[in-house]
């Protein structure tokens, strides 16, 4: 197990390194941030001074080397725009995004799994068919459009919930600003979280339904019934334990995706998270922020994958974490 984790850690370092090179070169290729950042009226001298200050006068490999040595010490450079460390800019925004992603995943799990089970147990019933038809909508409606519709209905027409922004925050452990302790925080969180959750609700419904449908045909379910167990126990223990394995994988991977792709929802609801910061940074080619953001996201994916693998071995006794041959 320990060997496994160490091995995974080393693999992750390689991934992070390659990714940082790719992003570095990629952002360099897109354009020169100076053209955007500097006042067009500035003279050549000012211009060169600005370039030198940002370190953009040096050749790309040298720029990367500077970044690389800095990154080893936890310094990802300063934002070109804000002139503050890129990493602190991102960490400042991270709680908002994490809160949104957690809320969305919670909604997805709380609605997706029971609805999927229901549809799997009664595939031919009206409720089951309705759930499945609804899940197709959840899959296919574009997130930004659903977001706009939610605002239209709940903020504009009904006026029940605020359309944008985040509610008042309280520092959790004196460190992490969170908004879910106040009613107003919840009211702000509700619409964007629902918006972000929709796709995952649909995904979990379909996944759970398929799993339940398959599990119900297995001999162990027939044997469990022959033992005289109650339906509640057969579904809740025998079926659920088996279908939880694919569900945990998808929830894990989707959680990473929620954090990374909350961008659309954050833009629609003006949610002050990392996604919005990324979009703004790409617009001005603020390379340190973009690189740092992507490194953080990749690290998150790696950690989530590791957690999923460990959960696997807890859920499925046949899985033992040994050194992978890959």
């Amino acid at each position: 197990m320990l060997v496994y984790i160490i091995r995974r850690g080393l693999q992750s370092v390689v991934v992070l390194f390659l990714m940082s090179v790719l992003v570095f070169v990629g952002v360099y290729a897109i354009g020169n941030p100076i053209d955007i950042l500097i006042n067009p009226q500035a003279d050549q001298q000012d211009r060169e001074r600005a370039i030198a200050a940002l370190g953009l006068d040096k050749p790309l490999p040298e720029q990367y080397w500077t970044f690389f040595t800095g990154a080893l010490h936890g310094d990802f450079g300063k934002s070109f725009v804000h002139a503050t460390p890129a990493i602190s800019l991102i960490l400042e925004r991270m709680p908002a995004t994490l809160e949104l992603a957690f809320a969305a995943m919670l909604i997805a799990v709380v609605f997706g799994i029971p609805l999927g089970l229901w549809a799997g147990l009664r595939p031919n019933g009206i409720a089951g068919r309705t759930i499945m038809a609804g899940s197709i909508l959840g899959f296919s409606l574009p997130t930004f459009w659903v977001g706009l519709m939610l605002i239209m209905v709940f903020s504009v027409v009904l006026g029940w919930l605020p359309s944008n922004g985040r509610g008042p925050t309280v520092d959790l452990f004196g460190l992490i600003p969170v908004s879910f302790f106040s009613v107003d925080g919840w009211r702000h969180l509700m619409l964007p979280a629902t918006n972000l959750a929709l796709f995952n609700v649909a995904l979990l419904i379909r996944l759970t339904r398929a799993g339940a449908h398959e599990a119900l045909l297995q001999d162990y379910v027939k044997f469990a019934r022959a033992k005289g167990l109650t339906n509640r126990r057969i579904i809740g223990v025998h079926v659920l334990r088996n279908i939880l394995i694919p569900i945990v994988t998808v929830v894990g991977l989707q959680f990473g995706a929620l954090i990374a792709f909350a961008i659309v929802t954050e833009s629609v609801f003006a949610w002050p998270g990392m996604g919005k910061l990324l979009i703004d940074s790409i617009n001005v080619l603020d390379r340190p922020v973009i690189v740092a953001y992507l490194l953080i996201i990749v690290t998150m994916f790696i950690v989530i994958n590791l957690v999923v693998d460990v959960l696997y071995s807890a859920l499925d006794p046949r899985v033992r974490l040994t050194e992978s041959k890959g």
Binding site: D219, R225, A226
Partner: peptide, 19 residues
């Protein structure tokens, strides 16, 4: 079921819940 009448199935690889 399982009390007055019990049943044993064909394939023992499949009848016990693997998890």
């Amino acid at each position: 079921r399982g009390n007055r009448v019990a049943m044993i199935f064909q394939d023992p690889m499949m009848t016990l819940n693997p998890v």
